[in-house]
């Protein structure tokens, strides 16, 4: 669909000048050559973008002996095929996978919900000075996390979550993960607010005004009108945030000390450090850790693209 309305599409034959057969044929040939060059460039780019994944995938199926003998992007040679690295990688990363899921799912949902509320309060409810508050949210998107890292660890030392949660043993056992959830929610709010705001500022003001005149409360308008319309932007935000939180290493690195709380990026980094020469295991581990985000990306690529585009 997009291909047909794309501007600058070269003549596909129909709009050539039919009265001049010769030049039409020439033009078609010239166009053909240019088209071939175009597709050749596009395919070369596919090779460029996929080669690290392809060679990683092939290597993950090779035995230790095979991957040092063969070209990395070639399939495993006869006798050099193995699935052992996948089982071992999964085994080493399984705790991390569970912890990452326990972290990423609640943190994603909470940050999206809070972003939606903030964007509504700062966009569709009109009051003086909201731009100033909004500016602080937008600037928050661009903060280098290094600038908050030392206070962040200090904060979580002072706020002793395990003892605060001691009344709820199951939660206290996962205090490290809960710290990470709160942290990711807090630093995720700026971007989720920006994404929701871009969407909410396109909502029909007259419709909301009409509801207001009918006596609907601010909360009721959100609950009955704005929230039901937010489906598409929730999809974009949830997918973007899930990918960000699942993929993060830095916060986990400084906040997680208990090995039982290791998230998958931490576990994968440890695996890389301890299995220096076992590239097949490293590659299988990378794929196992990336699988959830890859799956989300393949299923919801369009929404992911909108999320990253909305970042700017």
């Amino acid at each position: 669909m997009a291909a047909t309305d794309a501007p600058g599409a070269p003549a596909s034959g129909s709009d050539g000048d039919p009265t001049d057969d010769r030049s039409f044929a020439d033009r078609l040939r010239a166009t053909g050559a240019r088209r071939i060059a175009l597709y050749a460039a596009l395919v070369a780019l596919v090779a460029f973008y996929l080669s690290p994944l392809e060679s990683g995938l092939m290597t993950a199926f090779k035995t230790q002996d095979a991957f040092f003998r063969t070209t990395p992007f070639a399939p495993p040679p006869p006798g050099g095929f193995t699935v052992e690295p996948w089982f071992e990688a999964f085994d080493r990363l399984s705790t991390g996978l569970i912890n990452s899921a326990l972290l990423a799912v609640p943190a994603t949902v909470l940050s999206a919900l809070l972003g939606s509320l903030a964007a509504y309060g700062l966009t569709n409810v009109d009051w003086r000075g909201q731009i100033a508050v909004l500016l602080l949210f937008v600037a928050g998107v661009f903060i280098p996390y290094q600038a908050v890292l030392v206070p962040l660890t200090r904060f979580w030392t002072i706020v002793d979550l395990p003892s605060l949660l001691s009344a709820f043993p199951p939660l206290a056992a996962k205090a490290g993960i809960i710290e990470l959830i709160v942290t990711h929610v807090a630093y995720g709010i700026p971007i989720t607010t920006v994404l929701f705001r871009a969407f909410y500022s396109t909502l029909d003001d007259e419709m909301l005004e009409a509801a207001r005149l009918d006596g609907a409360s601010t909360f009721r308008i959100y609950r009955r009108i704005v929230l039901p319309l937010s489906g598409p932007i929730f999809a974009v935000t949830l997918i973007y945030q899930f990918t960000q939180i699942w993929n993060d290493l830095l916060f986990a690195l400084v906040l997680i000390s208990d090995p039982n709380d290791q998230v998958v990026t931490l576990a994968l980094n440890t695996l890389k450090g301890s299995m220096v020469q076992q590239y097949n295991l490293q590659m299988a581990g990378a794929f196992v850790a990336a699988l959830p985000t890859l799956l989300v990306y393949v299923l919801f690529g369009e929404q992911f693209a909108e999320g990253v585009a909305g970042e700017s």
Binding site: A6, A9, L45, N247, Y297, F304
Partner: peptide, 27 residues
């Protein structure tokens, strides 16, 4: 340039953005 399979190409080119830096550093 009005190509075919535009979505497919775009999906491939953006794919690295969906990966963790831990994963891409290993690759």
């Amino acid at each position: 340039r009005g190509i075919r399979f535009e979505n497919g190409f775009r999906t491939v080119y953006l794919l690295p953005m969906s990966l963790s830096f831990v994963v891409t550093a290993i690759f």
